[in-house]
């Protein structure tokens, strides 16, 4: 192998791996960004330093969110003051709450239980304590 050949082979391998990474994440992202048509909308509002929720039927909850297993939910994420980040780590639900913007995230729980909700964008004094919980209940 000549002086340059090794380097060209190396760059070729690197580019091949990167193409694989790019294509794979394109496919997965395309899949997970598609919100199911029958997803129920839930308004999520972040403010210093708690989350409040409003269901489609108008019932409101603070800090604790009750959802039903086997349904799809589409979160509409608002912020009242500064930037927050709505995050349910166990369900890979994550999107920033930006004042003046409406962001979306969706998921469909297939398992009952209690899961933590947290804020993942620094928002001041009690950022560490901006926690809530998600309770997924079995539907009869």
């Amino acid at each position: 192998m000549g002086h340059d050949t090794a380097e060209w082979v190396f760059i070729g391998v690197v580019i091949a791996i990167l193409v694989y990474v790019g294509v794979d994440s394109w496919i997965v992202q395309k899949e997970v960004e598609e919100v199911p048509a029958d997803a129920e909308t839930i308004k999520v509002t972040g403010q210093q330093w708690f989350w409040s929720f409003e269901h489609a039927d108008g019932t409101k909850e603070i800090s604790t969110l009750h959802l039903k297993k086997g349904h799809a939910y589409n979160f509409e994420i608002y912020s009242k003051d500064v930037m927050h980040s709505f995050n349910i780590p166990d369900w890979v639900v994550f999107e920033d709450a930006v004042p003046g913007h409406v962001n979306h995230a969706w998921f469909a729980p297939d398992q009952t239980g209690e899961f933590p909700i947290q804020c993942r964008e620094y928002c001041g004094l009690l950022h560490y304590n901006m926690r809530g919980s998600l309770i997924v209940e079995d539907t009869p």
């Binding site: 794979d24 899949e31 086997g70 890979v92 469909a108």
Partner: peptide, 27 residues
């Protein structure tokens, strides 16, 4: 097993993660 009615979002994302880490650790 887990995909019933909707795609399983967290399985999709974590699968992607494990594929990527496999590539990363191999390299």
């Amino acid at each position: 097993k887990s995909a019933k009615q909707y795609i399983n979002l967290r399985a999709e994302v974590w699968n992607e993660f494990f594929r990527m880490t496999t590539a990363a650790f191999t390299v």
